[in-house]
Amino acid sequence: MNLDWSYMIDQIPLYKKALILTIKLAFWGILLSTIIGLICSIIQYSKVKVLRNIVQGYIELSRNTPLLIQLFFLYYGLPKMGITIEAELCAIIGLAFLGGSYMTEALRAGIEAVPVTQIETAKAIGLSNSQLIRYILLPQAVTSSVPALGANCIFLLKETSIFSGIAILELTNTTKDLIGMFYKTNESLLMLVIGYLIILLPMSLLLSWLERRVRHAEFGY
């Protein structure tokens, strides 16, 4: 297998652009889905029945449908009903819609892991509900769900490859285009894999470091 190195060097600027776009979309998607996750998990903790049912419905809907179909619906379906959304915004909305439910599940598990005594003690010393959530519940829930949140971040980063379905020139779509234009299959795919490794390896190292730090803060080892 002979690789055409000069071709690969020529394509670096294109891949750099695609890499930056991928990171940008993933960043906003992950940020939004974390916010959605926080809000939804607090709603699930609260005992308001109507809101809980809405959140439950949202989780089931987003967990049981593929991202590609969600994106197609947003990008090709909605404009026909008069709602036109730009492709990149579509991608971010789709990723946040999908990621929100995963983040909710992760945080909910964290909230459930907080011992009941903590909550009872907080109530006993007279904290209000919002104080209880802010000072007692969330700090402990977030620390114990850090591994799951990290796994979700990596999952969402990988899901960005699906944006190629709605004509966004991120890593995978760029590669597909280049294969179509120059027929340099091996080189393009190699660059693609390197591109994902550049994002995902530091990310996974960072996350395992963070996990260790959090565990250290919590248990002291």
Binding site: M1, K158, E159, S161, I162, S164, T172, T175, K176, I179, T185, N186, L189, L192, V193, Y196, L197, L200, L201, S204
Partner: peptide, 19 residues
């Protein structure tokens, strides 16, 4: 786990016939 499934599909779909 690290490489997205879409990329794996492309790898198998394009590399097997080409190489």
């Amino acid at each position: 786990r690290i490489i997205p499934i879409l990329v794996w599909l492309f790898v198998f779909y394009f590399v097997l016939p080409a190489d």
